[in-house]
Write a protein that binds this DNA or RNA. Structure first.
Lengths: 169, 169
DNA sequence: GTCAACATGTAATAGGTTACATGATTAC
DNA sequence: GTAATCATGTAACCTATTACATGTTGAC
């Protein structure tokens, strides 16, 4: 299967978050928090918006200065079903999807956190196993100190993340 | 300027860490910790190794079953000067470079941690400012709850990271 | 008036993935 | 013997970046 494209959903999510956005404004949005999880240059954004309009995901509204894009009912459904797709272990889409959830009481919020928790608990188990098997002696630590640091740091980081997920479930 | 290629340095770093590796073994390595920071498929690895051999960064050693690659003195220098390039704010190469430092007493270790600390302190300041400006009222939080969560989580995460960097300096 | 920022678009290129191919070895 | 894994390589395709291009608006 071809690799799943994320960009159109990101644009859809951004437009949905803000109500309406121009291509230029979207490119500026990537300088903010969402830029931590996804990025796109204007040369990608404009053609993508045109495609999305063709597909009926968005409609445009021109004020003579900028072309703004608004999400359609169809687009809402498309965004929603993308958000509802289960998180894959490799995808790293948790934060991105979270960013697109506006309402605190949206049931998807808890669902995403639960999914992420399960994935991260597995990962934590795996990392701890790796630490034991790879660094079974002080000699291993000394000879691959950088690797040792990032592995122990990863365990700390994931432990903190799991703790946060648990308090927000 | 064209975007800086990372892949050859990653292959060089992996070969340097392990002594010698075949193309196949390198592709397997990406299933381990280093895969968190970089990935390459075998169709990228084999041609890249051939180029690196042409450039004199590595030499090969065939046992009839696999072709193993070993780093040359030239390759050592190339790897070292890449590791010594200052970290860029956007690059996210800290963990990757750390992974390639074998010796605990290598002065580069402290240097990398110091650089990362500076970058992350700036980022933390920026995130805290964003929190104040974007979420100045409860209404903003309620209407963009996902965004609020990832922003507050990012502040927590970076705070922890800074703490870790400080204890490892 | 000119420099930065706003605003949109296309073309060339690089980087990376999936698919296509092939053959050897090992475990069952 | 046959399925999984080892092992390497190329071709086609897609994505995304940089460069090229152009015009407007607002600040100083």
């Amino acid at each position: 299967m071809p690799k799943k494209r994320i960009l159109p959903y990101v644009l859809l999510g951004l437009i949905n978050n803000k109500g309406k956005l121009s291509g230029y404004q979207i490119s500026q949005e990537f300088k903010n928090e969402v830029g931590e999880f996804w990025h796109a240059s204007h040369s990608q954004i404009y053609p993508e918006l045109a495609r999305m309009k063709d597909d009926g995901w968005v409609k445009d509204e021109d004020d003579g200065k900028s072309t703004y894009y608004l999400i359609t009912d169809n687009g809402q459904q498309v965004l929603r079903s993308w958000l509802e797709e289960p998180l894959s272990k490799t995808g790293e889409l948790f934060s991105l999807k979270l960013y697109f959830i506006k309402d605190k009481s949206d049931s998807l919020l808890k669902s995403l956190i639960r999914q992420e928790l399960e994935i991260k608990l597995d990962k934590l188990t795996h990392l701890k196993k790796r630490l034991k098997t790879v660094f079974f002696s002080d000699k291993q630590i000394e000879q691959n100190y950088g690797h040792y640091l990032i592995l122990t740091r990863a365990i700390e980081r994931e432990t903190n993340h799991v703790k946060w997920l648990r308090t927000n479930i």
